[in-house]
Structure formats: C-alpha cells, structure tokens
C-alpha cells in the first residue's frame, strides 16, 4: 500500500484540529446508531419517554428475546447469508467479464450499453415487481430452483440489480491495469483466457471486494423481493421478514424493531471490518486512468 505521507507534514495545531473534527464527526454520525442500540436495550415504556436519556438504568434483553424467539429465526439468518453470498460472488464474476469488455474493447453501442446498464435503476422498483413476479413464476415452470418461493427467485433479481453498478465501478479498475502488461502477457504466449483469469483477475480483485460491499448490503437489506416472491414457502424467508414482524397497524413494537435492526446491522459491520482494508486499497485502483 502506498500510503501517503503528506499527513506527517501538516503543522501540528492543524493536525490536532483535524483529528478533533474527525472524532466529533464520528461521534455525531455514530449517535443515531448508539440510539438504536440503546433503544433496543431500554425496557418497554422507556423508549418513548418525555425525559429522553442517553442511557438506561434498567437495561433489558426483552426486545432481543422477542427477536430471537421468532420461529425459524436462525433459518432466516442463514438464508440471508446464502442469498447475499451467492449474489456477491455471481455478480462480481459476471461484472468482471462485462467490465473487461467495456473497458478494454471498442465496439459499436459501447456507450449506449453503458447508459442502458443504469436505466433499470431509474425505475421505481415496485413498477418492476409485477412483471418480475410473472417472469419468476414462468421461469420456475421450466427451470427448477429459480421459481417463486425459492431462494433463486431472490438471488436472480438481486444479481440483475447489482450488476449495472458493479460493471460501472469495475470498469475503472480494469482500465487502471496498464496496457503494457497485457501485451507482455501475449508476447509470453499467454492465451486470452489465461490473461483474463490469472493476470487481470488478481489485479482487480480489490476492486471486486469494493463493489461486493454494495451488492452485499442491497441483498442483505432487501424487503420488497423477499415479501413478494417468497409466498408459501416461509422456510425460505430472509432476515428482513423477522424485522417486519414488529411493524403493526395498532402500534409498532419499537423495542423489537431496534433490536432486530441491531441484529441485522452487526453482520454487515463485521463484513465491513473484514474487507475495509481491501476496500480502501481496492477502490483506489479506479482512479488510475
């Protein structure tokens, strides 16, 4: 990692000011998160109190108990992990190939294609749900494992929705790999697929990690497909369904909502912590023009 040493040259008072600012901003940004976790631990009745306190004297695990005691909670968790995992890997591979095509080749409709990739994201997703519903239903008749009620019916749409962004991001990383490297590889007798998988792929791997974070979050936090496509097979539901239980017409269970959200956010944070070093070194590649 080519860490910039510029920071060391900054005059001391300025650096202290900068660090103080960073810490204050971090505290402000983290405060809503703190409030979420705090509300999850507050006893019922204290969450909406006329004397809001940033602490609680009687922490309670009741809200978490209501989350974990849901039937099949563990199963939902594993389903979410599986869906997000497959989406991350599949969309990274597909996007890598496509990004190589648009970054390394000139061909007709290249620019049009790039813009087309974005178009699907411009439509309200509810508008696409009905056509996709019937598509999944019909697809399920001929291809087992992707029809309605299967995890495949969640995986496929998520891959489709995370691809455009992944291709756009990865394009920058692929572009960053010097042309000379490619030519040298061919001179050494490497085949095109050898170059692709054994030289280019490892080079843009940090970029793949970076884009994976986005697909992971979108698949992990999705409500709409989960509640539209998993109809009778509740054993194939995902984690957000365990959160939605707490929203009710005659009064939301705030404690449950906060506890379930905390439980949902933690795996993403762990995923982040694991990838954050690669993420930062990875994204940098995108600027090398």
């Amino acid at each position: 990692m080519s860490h910039s040493r510029v920071s060391l040259r900054i005059r001391r008072p300025w650096r202290f000011a900068a660090e103080a600012t960073a810490l204050i901003v971090a505290a402000v940004v983290a405060f809503p998160l703190y409030w979420m976790v705090l509300s999850a631990f507050k006893p019922e009745g204290e969450i909406q109190s006329t004397e809001p306190r940033p602490w609680t004297t009687a922490p309670s695990l009741d809200s978490f108990r209501r989350v974990f005691q849901q039937e099949d909670f563990g199963r939902y968790f594993l389903n979410s992990l599986f869906v997000a995992g497959v989406v991350v890997v599949a969309s990274a591979l597909i996007a890598f190939l496509a990004a190589t095509a648009v970054a390394r080749f000139t061909f007709r409709f290249r620019t049009t294609l790039l813009i087309m990739f974005l178009v699907a994201q411009m439509v309200p997703i509810e508008a696409l749900t009905i056509p996709m519903f019937f598509l999944m239903r019909d697809l399920g008749e001929s291809v087992p494992g992707v029809g309605l009620n299967t995890l495949g019916s969640l995986i496929l749409p998520h891959i489709a929705f995370s691809l455009p962004f992944a291709i756009w991001m990865l394009r920058g990383f692929v572009k960053a790999v010097p042309e000379a490297l490619e030519e040298a590889a061919y001179l050494d007798g490497a085949s095109r697929s050898r170059f692709l998988w054994q030289i280019l792929f490892p080079l843009v791997f940090p970029g793949l990690v970076a884009t994976s974070v986005f697909s992971f979050i979108s698949a992990w936090n999705d409500f709409l497909f989960a509640k539209s496509f998993i109809i009778s097979a509740t054993e194939n539901s995902t984690l957000p369904m365990a959160l939605l239980v707490f929203f009710k017409a005659e009064g939301n269970d705030w404690g449950g909502i906060m506890a379930a959200s905390t439980v949902m956010t933690i795996p993403v944070l762990i995923f982040f912590v694991l990838v954050q070093r690669r993420l930062v070194s990875g994204l940098g590649g995108a600027v090398k023009d």
């Binding site: 971090a26 940004v29 936090n221 949902m264 956010t265 944070l269 912590v273 954050q276």
Partner: peptide
C-alpha cells in the same frame, strides 16, 4: 473511528 461510524450508518436498514 470515523470510518467505522460511517460504515455503521451505511449498513443500517
């Protein structure tokens, strides 16, 4: 600290 706080905000549904 700032990075983690930001990532938490990003990850919250």
């Amino acid at each position: 600290a700032l990075m983690l706080a930001a990532l938490g905000a990003w990850a919250t549904p």
